[in-house]
Design a protein around this nucleic acid. Structure first.
Ligand SMILES: [Mn+2]
Ligand SMILES: [Mn+2]
Ligand SMILES: [Zn+2]
Ligand SMILES: [Zn+2]
Lengths: 135, 135
DNA sequence: AAGCAGATTAGAACTGTTCTAAAAGCTGCA
DNA sequence: TGCAGCTTTTAGAACAGTTCTAATCTGCTT
């Protein structure tokens, strides 16, 4: 799969971003395993654990740049904290309320019928379905 | 409609909250017209415009208490800011991206079929559909 | 190797929200 | 009505997540 190539410098260049040490280390953590949902803090902790020095500001910069480049998608499910999602395809989320865990589910199996037409002067951007569950 | 009675002191008492001047003024602004979507800041500005002195802390306290009492529901659609919704029935939202406007649409017309079963050990709490639109 | 645009960084700043602790307001009862 | 005891309000401090600043550093081009 081309889009999943482990050549992170090349993927970053293709996205218009210089493959710096920090960005490559962040991309590795984000994209080398399966799909992930991270927060800035959790990603910062993970990358620091690989002994690559990265500041929190750089993590925020990179997350915003990766999102703007379409490598990540931002998910807002709870007040005060953004999640970043390495799964950029069509899908929806389970949100486990007390713990803050996010789990994907494919949008293929879900049918949403009867959505009203967008308000006058607007065009549809995306439909997010959040299934909130509790333990 | 009993639940829509304009006797705000009585409605607050029924919710287990003392009908103080501030809470009655907030309830009036929130509930006397049709359904509303407010932020703490917008509600604070509106109530102060009625010449009732209220601190922002009291607005936050009241919004959280009203929500806990089931008079309001909290809606999270954008990072860094909570909306409070006077419509506590089943419904979903249009979110107009650049301006931050929220509009209801009834859930009756929308059919969501094929939702996967919640992860092991969890029970369904609510399904939120957010239709994001742009100008 | 030099030059330069772009990236990183520590820390300050900012925004939305909650907390603290003191003052004020209600309520029930003498 | 007066008072006690609890609840509520409040200003401002504190806090959490995020962005900004401006100095330093790095990676790419020549
Ligand atoms: Mn952002
Ligand atoms: Mn809250
Ligand atoms: Zn996801
Ligand atoms: Zn609504």
């Amino acid at each position: 799969m081309l889009g999943n190539s482990p050549d992170f410098p090349a993927r970053l260049r293709a996205a218009g971003l210089r493959p710096t040490k920090q960005r490559v280390a962040l991309a590795r953590v984000l994209f080398e395993a399966g799909h992930r949902h991270v927060t800035a803090e959790s990603l910062h902790a993970e990358v620091k654990a690989t002994r690559m020095p990265v500041s929190l500001a750089t993590v925020y910069n990179a997350l915003n740049q990766f999102r703007d480049a379409g490598l990540l998608r931002e998910v807002v499910v709870a007040p005060g904290r953004s999640y970043f999602d390495t799964n950029t395809g069509h899908h929806h989320h389970f949100y486990v309320e007390p713990d803050g865990e996010l789990h994907d589910f494919p949008s293929e199996k879900v049918t949403i019928a009867g959505l009203p037409t967008p308000p006058k002067g607007t065009r549809l951007a995306r439909v997010d379905v959040i299934v909130r569950v509790r333990r």
